[in-house]
Write a protein that binds this DNA or RNA. Sequence first.
DNA 1: AGTGCGACCCGAACGC
DNA 2: TGCGTTCGGGTCGCAC
Length: 288
Amino acid sequence: MQTKIFHVKINMKVIKMPEIAEVETVRNTLKKRILNKKIKEVKILYNKIIEGDSKELAHVLVNNEFKDILRVGKWLIFELDKYYLLSHLRMEGKYFIKNHEEEINKHEHVIITFADNTDLRYHDTRKFGRMKLVKKEDLWNTEEIKKQGKEPMDSSLTSKYLLDKFYHKTMPIKTALLDQEIISGLGNIYANEVLYAAKILPTREAGSLKEEECQALINQAKIIIEKAIEMGGTTIKSYTSSLGVTGKYQDFLKVHKRDGMPCYTCQKPIKKIKIGGRSTYYCEYCQK
DNA sequence: AGTGCGACCCGAACGC
DNA sequence: TGCGTTCGGGTCGCAC
């Protein structure tokens, strides 16, 4: 099983979507497969994935079991008895469940073996992902968790909240959308999509947005995330091969990676620029 | 404090 | 063909 196969084929390229919807999909998928199974061995093959002492982490996991899996923003949180194991997939982190006998792939960096001889394997080609052990009582005082802003699906994410966060901000709205301390869970791809759907130019100063524009961002973020979670679930279930992508995914992304191609609304070519070093796609006519 | 940018990684795509 | 170069993702840390 591959848990991170949130891929969309566009222009014959596979686009990866390491965002909140995908992390939620991973959480739901793993919950069905790994809870309440005794861990008998932990191998850490690349130490920099682990923040802190990797030997201690392995020691804590062995003879323990995962009770539940939570999520805050893009952080996966595996519940143990006295600790939580935090896991951030960054761009290319994936979890596989394999039989322990299967050969270890060169990108598998953490191998957790259960008593039933199945492995939970953390796979990360770019080695950007991170894991960290925290004591249960410290979870909400952990920097990474504490600073997460409101999630798109959270009803307390309101236009007033955004208006307040954006107040006097000179950075482009695109950059502000990627700030996890404001909205937790949006990545570069969804930021592009949300701005297009809300008809807001990515270059606008965040502080220049009106309340109704903030509301439009929230509305579109909810729609896009919800759809993506729905699609993610479907993708996991129907996954059979690397080509297991159905037709509807091709219609999902409206601007991302579509530079030079006609805008679906006005037919003028989609522009591509860099904002904060990140690829930004937009329609200069439809977005104001 | 707010903002911007390089570093971290490595496979894929691109240029010659 | 094969080589070297560029790009892209999220986040942190540093410089201004």
